Computed example of a mutant assay.
Amino acid sequence: MKTTAYFESVVRPKRPEIEIAWIEQVLANPIKTVTQIDRRMCHWANIPEADGRVLRVVTLEDGETIHNAFFDRNFFKKQQRGEQP
């Protein structure tokens, strides 16, 4: 798994509860993928082991290099209300 320096120096220490296996799961089976204006890609998926919360993984434009990962409360709330996130 390729990662950015930002991911290693900021994200991993700040969010140690996010498991690498979960990040790989999101990239392998996203429920939604969007390309941002800056060409980074956002991938979302529910993580059953984290009470079904939605993990958002941001990659560089190659779709493989991990730049950020966090639980997306807004996506999860919309999903719970039956809205299209």
Score class of each variant (00 low, 15 high):
Cys42Lys: 14
Asn68Asp: 13
Met1Val: 01
Thr65Gly: 11
Glu17Asn: 15
Arg53Val: 00
Glu8Pro: 04
Leu27Phe: 02
Lys14Ala: 15
Ile31Gly: 07
Arg53Cys: 00
Arg40Ala: 05
Thr65Phe: 08
Arg56Lys: 08
Met1Gln: 09
Arg12Asp: 03
Asn68Gly: 02
Val10Thr: 07
Pro85Trp: 05
Cys42Gly: 12
Glu83Cys: 04
Arg73Ala: 09
Ala45Met: 08
Ile37Arg: 07
Gln25Lys: 13
Thr3Ser: 11
Thr35Cys: 12
Met41Ala: 09
Val10Met: 10
Phe7Glu: 00
His67Cys: 10
Glu8Met: 13
Pro30Val: 03
Arg73Asn: 12
Asp72Ala: 00
Ile37Gly: 08
Gln84Ala: 14
Asn74His: 14
Ser9Val: 07
Phe7Asn: 03
Ile23Ser: 03
Thr59Leu: 01
Pro30Lys: 09
Arg53Trp: 05
Asp62Val: 05
Phe75Thr: 00
Pro48Glu: 10
Ala45Leu: 04
Ile18Trp: 01
Glu19Arg: 14
Ala5Lys: 11
Ile18Gly: 03
Pro30Gly: 12
Thr3Gly: 09
Gln36Ala: 08
Ala69Asn: 07
Ile47Gln: 01
Phe75Gly: 02
Lys2Ile: 09
Asn74Phe: 04
Phe76Leu: 06
Glu19Pro: 04
Asn74Leu: 05
Pro16Asp: 10
Thr59Trp: 01
Phe75Glu: 01
Ile23Leu: 00
Glu83Tyr: 03
Glu83Leu: 13
Glu24Leu: 06
Glu17Gly: 12
Lys78Ser: 10
Gly82Thr: 00
Glu83Asn: 09
Gln25Phe: 08
Ile47Asn: 04
Met41Gln: 11
Ala5Gln: 12
Asn29Phe: 12
Ile37Met: 15
Val26Thr: 02
Thr35Leu: 08
Asp38Ile: 05
Gln25His: 14
Pro48Cys: 09
Gln84Asp: 14
Cys42Pro: 04
Val58Thr: 04
Glu8Ile: 15
Gln36Met: 10
Lys77Asp: 09
Asn68Thr: 10
Glu49Gln: 15
Gln80His: 08
Val11Thr: 12
Phe70His: 12
Pro16Trp: 11
Thr59Val: 03
Ala69Ser: 10
Lys32Glu: 08
His43Pro: 01
Gly63Ser: 11
Asp51Ala: 11
Thr59Glu: 03
Trp22Ala: 03
Pro13Gly: 05
Ala50Ser: 05
Arg12Tyr: 04
Val26Glu: 00
Pro16His: 04
Met1Trp: 11
Pro48Ala: 10
Val57Cys: 01
Phe70Pro: 04
Tyr6Gly: 13
Gln36Ser: 10
Gln36Cys: 08
Ala21Gln: 14
Asp38Pro: 02
Glu64Pro: 07
Val10Leu: 05
His67Ile: 15
Glu24Gln: 06
Trp44Ile: 09
Phe76Gly: 02
Ala69Trp: 00
Val54Thr: 10
Val26Arg: 00
Arg53Pro: 00
Glu64Asn: 15
Asp72His: 02
Asp51Val: 04
Gln25Ala: 14
Phe70Tyr: 11
Lys2Tyr: 10
Thr3Lys: 07
Lys32Gly: 06
Lys2Phe: 12
Val11Ile: 13
Val58Leu: 06
Glu19Gln: 14
Met41Val: 12
Glu8Asp: 10
His67Tyr: 05
